[in-house]
């Protein structure tokens, strides 16, 4: 079950403080990277919720993010909605589509679940690719940014936008963490461990899975809204299965089922990508090698590795304390 251990809270605090400080001091390029990290972090929070905790490994989360980005852009550009209601609509639509996908895929597990979600993702991708309303291959431009001028906040400024992006990561994290400690979240973890038993206890399994998938889809949709507002241009590439695959890599790199780990993974991934790609065009290969090293180490990602090391240390210390008690 999900718990906020001191290590997790400390890591969250450090990441929040670090990104806020960076948002204050960074130049334009640094702020772009920060926004990129934030978008990926929200997406991997969404994915970890279902994959890490519920065992529902999805390859359609890129597409769900795309639904958010496209719905937001179309609602704002074509339907003339202002940014806030367009965001709400986009997130609701992502959630609804995710609920349907979750309901259909609920019966399949493991590799079949992955394949089914991949199929849904590809359907979304080719639909957008072919549709003229969605700009086809060319994509869509002109998505507005949220207008917070009433609060004296100007999101067209990239520094302010970076703070906004960090705030949305915090929002996504809060939703995921609250979901995990709700009845649904408890059932989700239970389903991962023993679906048959939960059914025998009276849980309507498909609905629990679909609801969890819907919440995850809503968070992915939020990532899509942020992506659309960041670049103010979206293309079908956003919905490609490779985006989902990359998100999965980041979740595993960071630490499946820890919620904190994938955010750390997003930071590492984006920073590594930019650092290494400035040295060599083969950055994918380097990231691949790192991923292999992480998987081969048998630790649960970078964060899992840290957690295990610290747990091992406290374990070796505790018996000595007990012995001291016994001696006294």
């Amino acid at each position: 079950m999900f718990r906020h251990t001191p290590l997790r809270l400390t890591t969250l605090g450090l990441m929040a403080a670090g990104s806020l400080i960076y948002a204050i001091i960074a130049g334009f390029f640094g702020l772009e990277i920060l926004a990129e990290i934030a978008i990926l972090a929200i997406l991997v929070i969404a994915l970890d919720l279902v994959a890490g905790f519920g065992g529902m490994v999805s390859l359609c989360h890129g597409a769900l993010m795309g639904v958010g980005a496209y719905a937001f852009t179309v609602a704002a550009n074509e339907a003339g909605m202002t940014a806030l209601p367009a965001m709400v609509l986009a997130i609701a639509l992502s959630a609804a589509i995710a609920f349907a996908i979750g309901a259909v895929c609920a019966r399949s597990i493991g590799i079949y679940f992955i394949m089914a979600t991949l199929a849904f993702g590809q359907m979304g991708y080719s639909f957008v690719f072919q549709s003229s309303l969605f700009g086809g291959d060319d994509g869509l431009s002109g998505a507005p940014r949220l207008d917070l001028s009433a609060l004296g906040i100007d999101l067209t400024d990239s520094r302010t936008f970076a703070f906004y992006a960090i705030a949305l990561v915090a929002l996504a994290y809060l939703v995921a963490a609250l979901t995990l400690r709700s009845g649904l979240g408890r059932s989700l973890v239970g389903l991962h461990h023993n679906e048959k038993r939960l059914r025998a206890l009276g849980l309507t399994v498909w609905r629990a899975k679909a609801t969890a998938f819907a919440i995850s889809g809503a968070i992915a949709g939020l990532a899509g809204c942020l992506a659309a507002q960041h670049t103010q241009y979206i293309s079908p590439g956003l919905m490609s299965w490779t985006v989902s695959g990359e998100a999965l890599v980041v979740v595993i790199l960071g630490g499946l089922g820890t919620l904190v780990g994938p955010i750390l993974g997003a930071i590492l991934f984006v920073v590594l990508k930019h650092e290494i790609s400035s040295i060599t065009p083969y950055w994918h290969a380097i990231v691949g090698l790192i991923l292999i090293a992480v998987v081969m180490s048998r630790a649960n990602g970078v964060f899992g590795f840290i957690e295990a090391r610290i747990a091992a240390r406290t374990r070796t210390r505790k018996p000595t304390l007990k012995e001291a008690d016994a001696d006294a």
Binding site: G183, R186, G190, L201
Partner: peptide, 21 residues
């Protein structure tokens, strides 16, 4: 957690969103 999950589901709280059963 094993016993709690069972009790929570039986009490119809296995899909609740607003509190930790």
């Amino acid at each position: 957690e094993n016993l709690g999950l069972s009790a929570a589901v039986a009490l119809g709280r296995g899909q609740g969103l607003w509190s930790d059963p």
